[in-house]
Simulated assay, not measured.
Amino acid sequence: MSRFTIQPTPLAGVVEINRKVIGDHRGYFTRFFCADELAAAGFDSPIAQINHSYSAKRGTVRGLHFQYPPHAEIKLVSCVRGRVFDVAVDLRAGSPTFLQWHAVELSAERHNSLLVPRGFAHGFQALEDDCELLYLTSTPYAQAAEDGINPTDSRLDIAWPLAITECSDRDRNHPPLTDAFAGITLRALTPELQEQP
């Protein structure tokens, strides 16, 4: 019996994953990750890192972050405290949804995650105080390969639900995208333009 429900989104490869909850008078149990089941949803590599972030203030934005190949990463993002507006932006060169974004509200109560494939930027906004996220990633952090996009870039026009109250200098100072930005080139093995392992 599957412990997950997989919900496709308008961006190929980005899926919302809902964890099934088994509960009784003691509380509940959910399976947070299963390599066998989630490989079919797109997390087809071993977990390389598990990262934890805490955002103290409602309105905080983190992102939009990504890594260039060969360090492009798959992320499975889950909110374990509070609620966040979680965003994936398609940066895949040649993708029919290039520079389009999709957002899902993640929360501890909803027991859901967003799977962000290689070739996407990721960011989120805290919808309440004291939000905590866990990121399962397929590739270790590589400082030389990291980059980002300004979360208020007009070409993306992300509809952040709240006024941005907190944002790092690094994220705020990313220059606007120009027509010269052609995206991230991944080796196409599937219609979703997944990178070869």
Rank of each mutant, 00 (worst) to 15 (best):
D153Q: 05
D147F: 11
T139Q: 15
A142N: 15
P175G: 00
A126F: 04
N173L: 04
S168R: 05
T97V: 10
G148S: 04
R19Y: 02
P96F: 08
L11K: 00
C79S: 02
A108E: 11
R19T: 05
F43G: 01
H111S: 00
I158S: 00
L127R: 03
T9P: 12
G94H: 14
D147T: 04
P117R: 06
T30P: 06
L106I: 00
E73I: 11
C131R: 01
C131T: 08
R110W: 05
E37S: 10
A144G: 14
E109H: 01
P10K: 04
A35K: 15
A39M: 13
E195N: 15
Q100C: 10
A41M: 07
H102I: 11
T152G: 01
I149P: 01
P151S: 07
L186E: 12
V14P: 04
G183R: 11
G42K: 06
P46L: 09
A108Q: 10
Q49T: 13
S45H: 15
T165C: 03
Y68H: 14
S107G: 00
Q49M: 13
T5P: 08
R58T: 12
D44T: 09
A108V: 08
L133A: 04
R83M: 07
L99G: 06
H25I: 14
R58G: 00
S113P: 04
L162N: 09
A188L: 12
K20M: 08
P191S: 04
D171I: 06
Q196I: 14
E146W: 14
V61E: 09
F98T: 06
L76E: 05
G94A: 08
A35V: 12
A103L: 09
N18M: 11
A72I: 14
R31W: 02
D147K: 05
R110P: 09
R170Y: 11
S2Q: 14
R83S: 03
T97E: 07
G119P: 05
L136I: 10
E73R: 12
S168G: 01
F120W: 06
V21R: 09
L189D: 13
T178N: 00
E73G: 03
D90F: 01
R118Y: 03
D86E: 02
A72F: 12
Q125Y: 11
L193W: 10
T152V: 14
